[in-house]
């Protein structure tokens, strides 16, 4: 039996994570993070979600607490998110939240309070290997979230339990139904928790000056105008407002001039990605033959890692600067980095 602090968002996955840990005989404490003090109705930390987590904890007969990390969340997640957009990047705030909040402050607080492990409802697994604990893909490949946990090293992994990674999502819901948990049928949250549904532009518009500019084609010919680059991301097809024959995609965003370049799908392809903040959690068998994933549920591509560069075996759709790539050796995540260009 271990002392486990499980982070309960009020969703079905973390509810079942808590239930499984309890069934395994652990001494379990549930905590819900209040991360965002601003307005949000899709948020992971609304009063209703806290109440769901609290009720599930009561059903499981485990103590439950709320941690107010809204100051830290603002400083470590929201401000960098806004700053990244201001710099023309497309950041992944969930990754930053995992790094700085869940596996940063909460893990630290749990350690201070004598907990052996923290746990979450992420669909991923911690497996033991000859080289120590490793992050592995979830049993349910379609729901795998190891990508957003790529930053976890041996130290964090040795103190982390991810019980629902062993189940399919269907099994998770079934388990919740069997236990009669009120979160069994709860809808999955898909959005950035501090932004209202579909409101990224409004959120950013209130925080960074709107930068209007031209939309140009590959040759530099102006084909349209836009009223704010924050509405665009690399690879975007919708909402370009450009009427040309074939489908056009955003292929480049020049922040300095607020110029958005559009082009055919082929123009999005590239063979290399440059990264910053590369971190390895384990050594791969062969860094020249890794599976590289650059989207939350994207198909991984075969590539070689050469220093800070990913060299794809075949050209891949361009990835926006600021996005995360994770490196896999088979099922095991070995690390990752942030795209610079």
């Amino acid at each position: 039996m271990a002392r486990v602090m499980v982070m309960m968002s009020g969703g079905v996955d973390s509810s079942v994570a808590a239930a499984l840990l309890r069934e395994q005989g652990h001494d379990v404490t549930g905590v819900t993070l209040k991360l965002w003090g601003g307005e949000s109705d899709s948020g992971c930390c609304s009063v209703a979600d806290v109440e769901d987590a609290r009720r599930v904890a009561a059903q499981l007969d485990i103590p439950h607490y709320v941690f107010n990390f809204s100051d830290a969340f603002d400083a470590d997640v929201v401000e960098p998110y806004v700053g990244a957009y201001a710099a023309g990047e497309t950041p992944n705030p969930c990754v930053e939240c995992n790094r700085t909040m869940k596996f940063g402050r909460v893990l630290e607080r749990a350690r201070r309070l004598d907990y052996d492990f923290v746990a979450t409802g992420h669909h991923a697994r911690v497996v033991m290997t000859d080289d120590g604990p490793a992050l592995a893909r979830a049993v349910d490949q379609a729901k795998d979230q190891s990508y957003v946990l790529y930053m976890l090293g041996a130290d964090e992994l040795s103190r982390t339990l991810l019980p629902v990674g062993e189940l399919t999502k269907t099994d998770v819901r079934e388990h919740a139904r069997t236990l009669g948990l009120r979160t069994a049928e709860k809808r999955e949250s898909m959005d950035v928790c501090f932004i209202k549904r579909g409101g990224r532009e409004a959120f950013l518009g209130a925080r960074i000056p709107r930068r209007s500019g031209a939309i140009v084609d590959e040759a530099g010919t102006v084909v349209g105008a836009h009223d704010g680059i924050d509405a665009f991301t690399i690879g975007q097809r919708r909402g370009l407002g450009v009427a040309v024959g074939e489908r056009r995609y955003v292929t480049d965003i020049a922040v300095g001039t607020a110029t958005v370049t559009v082009g055919p799908r082929d123009a999005l392809l590239q063979d290399r990605l440059r990264l910053r903040d590369v971190r390895w959690s384990r050594s791969p068998h062969d860094a020249r033959a890794m599976l590289v994933q650059s989207r939350a549920h994207g198909t991984p591509a075969l590539a070689a890692l050469e220093g800070d560069e990913v060299v794809f075996a075949s050209p891949q759709p361009r990835v926006a600067p600021g996005q995360v790539v994770a490196f896999y050796d088979g099922e095991l995540c070995c690390g990752g980095g942030i795209v610079t260009d």
Partner: peptide, 11 residues
């Protein structure tokens, strides 16, 4: 501590 808000978080 402080005044618990409706979510139970400590502000």
């Amino acid at each position: 501590s402080g005044s618990a808000c409706s979510s139970g978080a400590v502000d």
